[in-house]
Design a protein around this nucleic acid. Structure first.
Lengths: 351, 351
DNA sequence: CTGAAAGCGCTTACAG
DNA sequence: CTGAAAGCGCTTACAG
């Protein structure tokens, strides 16, 4: 497999011009005049030979690799982290940037992340994206300050690096609003017992929504582990235990889709039906649960794709003009978590 | 953010030696003698200055970028494609290779893929991985023949490019074997109605297993769409319809986990219990279904991580010595699909 | 309108 | 044991 590499010199020779001219016409270099005839000859020769400029050589010369790095923390265990990659990749494509990826496993030596960022710097990455999960704020490796950088999923503690996070609070509030508009008043929230930002944001949003509707924000909150089993137990506690159907919740908003999966099972075991007897809403729009449940689950989607795209778009503007970074660093940009309406919500019966 | 780039010349100056010597000691160049004292001085100077070689420059000179490209087809819609990336990335790390990623959406202009491979070639990728789903065999873009390459998920029609696929047939056969060893004889298969390689492989494996146990391989096959709703209908058809409990299946092996999810619902609606009354097995080990169902689903895992790792490992050996490729091209390498035993299988009752 | 030449930061024969 | 120099394939002042 000999890589017979056609170079700019070959094109110049074939077109009977200098490499300077070839470079100018192929790059449309501004402030440069070349006769149309010459241009045509160069372009034809390039096409003929199947010439593709060597990006390594160009990068070395221009001090811009045209590559951005994405460092992800435990993509393995994050459902849908793939969508962050997809968003980043498609946006990178638009700017003619290549996306390189490294992911780091949790609980590795903390200085490992510095080494990984350095790997991008060694390749002259024009910028790097650091995507985390679970964290409120983060202290990125020092190396990140050597290059345009952007955070996904957490705020930079020092407020220097621009960041983007999902607006879980507003997403949760909008669920309550949806339920209220359908006529629900006794809306329960099955909260997560794990103390991560999402836990707090969604709970706050629930309370915002209840308060906005003049409903008691605390009466129907129950806490459980954020898995199907927790959703089952929470829902059982909410609906069973001799609760009067006239006072028990008519809707259960679950911290996440896995809990909603357990809620469905509890509802079925009690001989009730979703959404006729009780509406259920999840959070995450986690494939394939949300669409596979019966009835299909109304839930809230996380803007993974959008965060990935935002990250490279922002990075690109930082790269092009290196000011304005300061404007963005202090507060994370919040991206909307839209409700995905499916079939698990209906007006409360008999009200 | 000035990138004050420490270069090899700075190290040479600081150590009082030539750049040649710096290069030799930092790279441990073979057949080269340098006094230990000089080596120490060079290493110290490099560490002191925080010197990291510019990989672009090195790549330009050595004609090896140290980067491999992964082109994935619709990673977006493939659950767990993230694990392919993870496997590839971690293996790349071991070989000091960087992984770049491009993914292509389905139904795009077919020549787009050639352009995407070319993007890797422009960056002098040392090799490229083409990861597809759904296909039996594939005709990769011509560009792929210009460089060491490897396929994931499909066979190269021309038998030139090494490939790796999951051994779904053996995985399915091993499920039947497991069930038989538990005492089941009436084992149903809820097959998929979509004609993709996985459909055929799993069905064949089921029949292999039945035949090996001297059971009728055709009696209990029913076909449905490969979603929860299809699993529900298939299971209803299998267990209901006035079937005598003494002749109906005691186990339902589903084409995938989503169908198994529907099977659970059918079993519950019939007033039966998994696994006491009927055992259920899935395929895919699709997160988060398999572990979130109650009882947790026994299923078969796909070797996504392993295929990713195999791909870069194979690529690496092709890169290092460019022979042996021919040996691998003709037939795809089959990777094991291991059973993940959870709680949905038990011996048939009363048998 | 076009081209000769320097230089990006390395590695690597080659010479001493 | 160490170093001067060429060259990887480009881009870009600069000169004409």
């Amino acid at each position: 497999m000999p890589r017979k590499q056609v170079g700019i010199r070959d094109v110049a020779a074939a077109a009977g011009v200098s490499v300077t001219t070839v470079s100018h016409v192929l790059n449309d270099t501004p402030h440069t005049r070349t006769s149309d005839e010459t241009k045509a000859r160069v372009r034809e020769a390039a096409a003929q030979l199947g010439y593709h400029p060597n990006r390594l050589a160009r990068g070395l010369r221009t001090q811009a690799s045209g590559m951005v790095g994405l460092l992800t923390e435990e993509i393995a265990t994050t459902p849908h982290a793939g969508r962050i990659i997809l968003g980043a990749q498609e946006e990178a494509n638009k700017h003619n940037l290549t996306l390189a990826i490294i992911n780091s496993r949790l609980n590795t030596d903390p200085e490992v992340e510095g080494v990984q960022v350095q790997a991008f710097l060694d390749r002259q990455a024009d910028g790097v994206i650091y995507a985390t999960v679970w964290h409120d704020e983060v202290v990125p490796p020092d190396e990140l300050h050597a290059v345009p950088a952007v955070l996904i999923g957490a705020r930079d503690r020092d407020g220097e690096i621009p960041s983007v996070v999902p607006d879980e609070r507003r997403g949760a509030a909008s669920v309550v609003d949806l339920l209220v508009r359908q006529g629900h008043r006794r809306i329960a929230f099955a909260a997560s017992s794990v103390d991560v930002p999402a836990t707090r944001g969604r709970l706050r949003g629930y309370r915002d929504g209840m308060l906005a509707a003049n409903l008691d924000p605390d009466e129907f909150i129950v806490e459980a582990i954020s898995e199907a089993s927790g959703g089952y137990e929470a829902t059982m506690g909410l609906l069973d235990h001799g609760r009067d159907p006239a006072t028990r919740p008519t809707a259960v908003f679950c911290y996440n889709d896995r809990m909603a999966m357990g809620a469905y099972r509890a509802v079925a075991e009690l001989g009730l039906t979703v959404p006729r007897d009780v509406s259920v809403v999840g959070f995450d729009d986690q494939d394939p649960i949300a669409a596979s449940l019966y009835p299909a689950l109304t839930t809230v989607a996380l803007p993974h794709y959008e965060m990935g795209a935002w990250a490279v778009e922002t990075l690109n503007s930082l790269i092009e003009r290196r000011d304005e970074a300061a404007l963005l660093g202090a507060h994370p940009v919040l991206l909307e978590c839209p409700i995905v309406e499916r079939a698990s919500v209906a007006p409360p019966k008999g009200d």
